[in-house]
Amino acid sequence: MEQVLNLQKLTKTYEEFVLDKIDLDIPRGYVTGLIGPNGAGKTTTIKLIMNLIRPDAGRIEVFGLNHDRHEQEIKNRIGYVGEEQFFYDQRSAAWTGRFVSHFFNAWEPETYARFLDRFELPPKQRIKKYSKGMRVKLSLAIALSHAPDLIILDEPTSGLDPVVRRDVLDLLHSVAAEENKTVLISSHITDDIERIADYIVYMIQGCIALFATKDELLSNWKAIHFKPGSAPDSVLDSLERVETQIFGSTGIIRDYPAIREDLAAGISSGDIRVENVGLDDILIALVNGG
């Protein structure tokens, strides 16, 4: 599979945080979700990819190009929506569009105007009067108006109301699906990622804890509910986050297909029940050392 982004032993050290030699490949043409709790290193990783901060060690290649030597060429092909949106606030969206159009090789003014219209952003109003949601939308409009091959979004839905959030996610989903773009989106809101991502990367404490397709994760990770004494030892050994209540216990299993047969008897007797888990359950299991 062709990679659009390749990180090798990427390291960045702050006083109270270390991004620790992470290796990561982002496949072309898919939506990859970067999930992790606050402070896991998602934003640091994205800032490093965007060359907004310098790595202490490691290598970053975007589109097969060294991110440092080919910064301008790479940024021309990336649509970026940061955690915070910075513009010249005294200026309008119309002015901003004209300004950035000079720097992007493939700027499409009609596309930009269409996005402003779709997002209901008044083009002549000063950006400082925009709400948080409007700023995200403006950032998204810029990111999508220069035919980027890779779209990078850092917590784009954080702080947005549910209606705007859904709108933004639907747009991203359609752009990724219809225009075959590669999207890397970070969020601690797992519902957002679950909605649009094909691949999932879990980041915990500056490390990549897990990287898999969403389908693999959701079919392999399951919640097992079992009555006392009903689960075989092979199953009990594989369970994580086991919580015991009055009528039974519940645990998370990473590789459900591997123990499916061991559970068959318990399932048919009704002593064992298997349920799907969400990406947030997996995150909690990983954070708790699973």
Partner: peptide
Amino acid sequence: KTHGYRFLQTLPLGWRK
């Protein structure tokens, strides 16, 4: 004050430019 650098950094512009 207007975070101009932070905005420009996200555009295809090198520091030298």
